Amino acid sequence: MYRRVLLSATAALALTGGFAAAQDEPTKVGFVFVGPIGDGGWTYEHNQARLAVEEEYGDAVETVFQESVPEGADAERVLTQMALSGADLIFTTSFGYMDPTINVAQRFPDVKFEHATGYKTAPNVSTYSARFYEGRAVQGLIAGRMTESNRIGYIASFPIPEVVRGINASYLAAKAVNPDVQFNVVWAFTWFDPAKEADAAQALIDQGADVILQHTDSTAPQAAAAEAGDVITFGQASDMAEYAPMPRVSSIIDNWAPYYIERVGDVMDGSWESQQVWYGIDEGMVKIGEISDAVPDDVREEAMALRDAISAGETHPFTGPINRQDGTEWLAEGETADDETLLGMDFYVEGLSGEIPN
C-alpha cells in the first residue's frame, strides 16, 4: 500500500527549511451492505465487485466494508464513521440507504457517494441501478413454459417500484407464452431472512406452485424447492449454481464490477461527476445465468432469443397492449413504457391478483 512518506527532519530542513510530506495515499473506498457477504445473492455480488476493484487497482486503492447494516439510523451512523475515517468514495447498496446517504453527503461535501437503486442525487451523490425487469422477463418466459400446474409463486421483498416492476415483467412474459398461468405473490418484507424466505417458498408450494421466483437474497427458497422436488427456481442476483441443474434452472446475475471499477477510476483521476445510471442486459449489468439441461432445448432457445432481442432494443418487456389491474388501458398496441413510469411503478398489470401493500 502507498503510505504517507515523511522526509527526515534534517533533510527537510536542508531542502525547504521545514517539514515536507509526500501524500501518495491510496484512494479509500467504502461499501455499505444490507446483508452478509456470504448471502449467496445480492450482497455477495456487490462484494465480488469490491474485490474486482482491489484486483484492478492494487495498492492504489484501499477498500473497507460493513455488512448486514439495517436500513435507517444505523446506516447513517455507519456512513458517518466511514466518511470520518477518510473514505473518498462510498457505495451504499440498498434502496433504504437513500435518505441516510443524502443526509451524510450533505455533511461531507468532499466525499463522493454512489447509491444503488434510489432516485435522490446531490452534487456529490450519484445513483445507479440495473434494469432487473429485463432479466425477469426472461425468467417469466421459462417459468410460463415449464409450469405444469400453471401456478407460479413469487417471493417479493418490499413494495417498491423495483420489485413491482419485476413481478409485472415476469408475469407478462409468462402470460404471453402460457395464457393459463397464475401468479401467487407472497410479501416477505425482508431482503435477507432465510427462515422467512423458506417459509414463503413452502407456502407457495403448498398452494400448488411448481415454479418459484424470488426478489429476496438467500438461497433458502432453492433449498425448500429441492426438498419438495418437481419445483423449479431461479437464482436471484447471483448464479446460485450450486442448485443447478435442479431446482435452479437459470438466474439473474447482477454484474456490478465494471461500474465500480469505472467510478473508482473517475475519483482517482478527478473526473467523477454526479449522474444517474440505469443499465440492463445490453450494457452487461444484468446477465442471464446458464440455463440448465433441465430446461428443454426449444424453451432455452426461446429464452435466449428474448434475451438477445431485449439487448438489441428490438423488444421491450413492457410493450402494449397492456392494461392496469383494474382493466383501464396503460399502454396501447405497440406502445412501450417510458422510464419515468417504470421508475415509479406502483400498480399491478391486468391479470395479477391481490393488492400491493402500502
Rank of each mutant, 00 (worst) to 15 (best):
P70N: 08
A198M: 09
R165K: 12
S157H: 05
G86P: 04
S157E: 14
I291V: 09
D297S: 11
F183R: 06
V34F: 11
Y57T: 00
I232Q: 12
E262L: 13
A237L: 01
T117D: 13
V69I: 06
F108Q: 05
E227S: 10
S8A: 07
L84D: 14
L89T: 11
Y128D: 05
A22Q: 11
R300E: 11
P317S: 01
V349W: 00
N47R: 03
D297R: 07
D230W: 06
N168C: 13
L172V: 00
G41P: 12
A83H: 08
D346E: 08
A201G: 08
E148M: 08
S85R: 05
L51S: 01
E25W: 15
D282I: 07
A209Y: 02
Q139T: 04
G289H: 06
V104T: 06
T16D: 03
S170L: 05
I37F: 02
D308Y: 06
D74H: 00
V104P: 02
W272C: 13
W42F: 05
V32E: 11
L6F: 01
I253E: 12
S271W: 10
E67S: 13
N168A: 07
N184R: 14
E283H: 10
A75L: 04
A143M: 00
E290Y: 02
A309P: 07
S149Q: 04
Q48T: 09
M246E: 04
F183E: 12
S311P: 07
E340N: 11
Y259M: 09
